[in-house]
Design a protein around this nucleic acid. Structure first.
Length: 621
DNA sequence: GCGTCACGCCT
DNA sequence: CCCGGGCGTGACGCC
């Protein structure tokens, strides 16, 4: 499984760069490339967006200390035509062992500039390799090169520290080109060095995750970004106008109640007004120990009949929604109202994906604020949305082999009710206990959550639950012992999370590491199941020739856009792909439906949104 | 301009 | 101070 390279021909860590000035020179370079050894490629572009303009493409063989740079003709007078470059690369990339540092990005730029998917088969991604080896390492190429090889690479901003539209290309073009070639050539050269270093640091299990889970998943995330999701911008604008008018009214009423005007978004000013001037009671404190002005505090005040509490709670919720989502999203769509967020496969320590620009994984999902209603399929398409039911508890059952927990799922029962029944507590309390088992909730926090004494909480955790599910308890013990022995844990697929905290002198770090050991094993197994399910499902949709497109994932949920008339078949394929992603002794089940927007809401539009705020409904506006 | 805090949205 | 894992906003302090 190890990807070997020829040790005898290892290049010395010193790089020279050749500027290729004609397609003939490019072709000659390719003719000299040995297909047996990895070939690094790296784009330089005008930005990070999917439609960034390529400035040039650098290539370097892992066995060579010379990289080449192919300039594009958008700016450089010596640059080559995009079509010509694509034609040659489509021919000569085939059969090569392509490597890149963040192949999701470079292959996206390639796809957008005439490279075919089939010619860009990625052999290894050094960013993924670093992440799989140790997720806590800096993954940035500059940082990695410095930390691994003590070499100070030029940073991109040093080369091109100015706005592209401000460059006088006639005057500066040639010198810029030389600097860019040098910079880019170094990138591929050091990508090769990283490949060599990390290829021998990954074991068979990690390589398998890289090959079978990460690389195929990355292609899907790349394609999803290129496609993007259509947004109902008029709906968001309308919501925004309504929120503005609500906020304006609430704000002035708060100032009246407080008897002064201040910045409602400044925790510091709020503290002054509420605690020093108005002498309102402190409910909780922040991490730093100062009195908190969060929405929980406001709600407590409201319960105590302090009117400003209700107003403040309304303000903070509405303002969050407005500034964080309703106002932010229209700034990010293209001229066709298509949103292209990033989903990053190497963004977390557990193996989950993260998302940004915008974060597609924290879009509000409440009945009151249907921001997800603004995520809509294109004309002629529908959304198919499916999420795993109790994925993490099923994983806990499977990994721990606890008989009682396994039986719940074998018999199609409800794990929360089972806990409630066995522990003699309410279903809602049982749900909290189940979350606590997965997250490593301690007695004090459970007590606070359930509003019971620490002693009662201790009894639930250390006695009642252990007695009801002894296999879960002993499995957790084994996972923590393993972590203490190896300084890392592995999930079901062998993905590693390093936990140096298990030998920390600090009590908090130590117990935190033990909680992470348990949580990462479960959460990370879930993450890899979802990634596998994505790969399997997308592959199956493609094989069936369906006009169906993966759009995004939210940890245990997948969203697809499918041509209307193919929705029923596509849904069956998606269900099958997700539910058979991994073979467990208990079934993995999914819920979901075919929908016309991403909201869970079934009726009503923004005009009649049933805002829960009595203030708003009381006719004061 | 950049990092940190406090806060709050998701799972 | 802290139950796991994220990201974005606004304020504020530092440079």
């Amino acid at each position: 499984m190890l990807k070997l390279f020829d040790m005898k021909t290892l290049a010395a860590p010193k790089c020279s760069v050749l500027l290729l000035e004609s397609l003939k020179e490019v072709e000659n370079y390719f003719l000299g490339v040995d297909s047996k050894n990895p070939l690094a490629f790296d784009y330089e572009t005008t930005g990070l967006a999917y439609d960034a303009i390529p400035l040039g493409l650098s290539l370097c063989q892992v066995t060579s200390d010379t990289s080449v740079f192919i300039p594009y003709n958008y700016f450089f007078t010596k640059g080559l035509e995009s079509e010509g470059i694509a034609k040659l690369c489509n021919k000569y990339f085939k059969g090569k062992k392509l490597i890149a540092h963040n192949a999701k990005y470079d292959s996206m730029i390639g796809l957008m500039n005439g490279f075919s998917d089939s010619s860009m088969e990625i052999y290894a991604d050094t960013l993924v390799m670093v992440h799989l080896y140790d997720s806590s390492l800096d993954k940035n190429l500059e940082q990695r090169v410095f930390q691994d090889f003590k070499y100070r690479k030029q940073s991109f901003s040093e080369i091109c520290g100015k706005k592209w539209n401000k460059i006088d290309w006639d005057k500066e073009g040639d010198s810029l080109l030389e600097m860019l070639a040098g910079y880019s050539g170094e990138d591929t050269f050091w990508t090769c060095r990283l490949y060599q270093k990390y290829s021998i640091m990954l074991d068979e299990q990690l390589w398998k995750i890289h090959d079978k889970i990460e690389l195929p998943n990355i292609k899907i995330l790349r394609d999803a970004k290129i496609r993007g999701v259509l947004m109902d911008i008029p709906l968001l604008k309308q919501m925004g106008r309504q929120l503005d008018s609500y906020l304006e009214k609430i704000e002035s009423d708060i100032y009246s109640e407080a008897g002064c005007v201040f910045n409602l978004n400044s925790p510091k000013q709020k503290q002054e007004v509420f605690f020093q001037k108005m002498k309102l009671p402190i409910v909780t404190t922040t991490g730093k120990g100062s009195p908190s002005t969060d929405s929980g505090t406001f709600d407590t005040w409201a319960e105590q009949g302090i009117r400003v509490g209700e107003l403040l709670s309304e303000y903070s919720t509405l303002n969050k929604l407005n500034s964080g989502y309703v106002r932010a999203i229209p700034e990010l769509v293209d001229n066709k109202n298509v949103l292209r967020g990033d989903i990053n496969s190497c963004g977390t320590d557990t193996g989950r994906c993260s998302s940004s620009n915008p974060n597609l994984q924290n879009q509000p999902n409440s009945d009151q604020f249907p921001v997800r209603k603004a995520f809509i399929p294109r004309a002629g398409y529908v959304f198919i949305n499916r999420d795993y039911s109790q994925l993490e508890l099923r994983i806990l059952a499977e990994l721990s082999r606890d008989k009682n927990l396994l039986d719940v799922f074998k018999q199609g029962g409800d794990p929360h009710s089972d806990v409630a029944h066995r522990l003699g507590i309410s279903r809602s309390a049982a749900k909290t206990v189940n979350f606590g088992v997965i997250y490593g909730l301690g007695p004090d926090n459970l007590a606070r959550k359930l509003d019971i004494s620490s002693k009662e909480a201790s009894k639930i955790i250390d006695h009642d639950y252990v007695k009801a599910y002894p296999g879960v308890y002993s499995w957790k013990q084994r996972v923590q012992q393993y972590a203490k022995k190896h300084y890392y844990v592995r999930n079901y697929f062998g993905r590693i999370r390093r936990l140096p905290g298990v030998v920390s002198g600090s009590n908090y770090e130590y117990f935190s590491a033990l909680r992470k050991a348990v949580n990462t094993t479960i959460q990370g197994t879930g993450a890899d199941i979802v990634k596998l399910a994505t790969v399997k499902t997308v592959e199956s949709l493609r094989k069936n020739g369906l006009d169906a497109h993966f759009l995004l994932q939210v940890h245990d949920e997948l969203l697809f856009e499918v041509r209307e008339d193919q929705a029923i078949l596509a849904e069956q394929i998606i269900i099958n792909g997700m539910e058979t992603a991994v073979k467990f002794s208990i079934p993995l089940l999914t819920d979901g439906k075919i929908i016309l927007n991403w909201s869970e809401m079934k009726d009503s539009d923004i005009v009649s949104v049933p805002y829960r705020f009595s203030y708003v409904l009381s006719g004061l506006i």
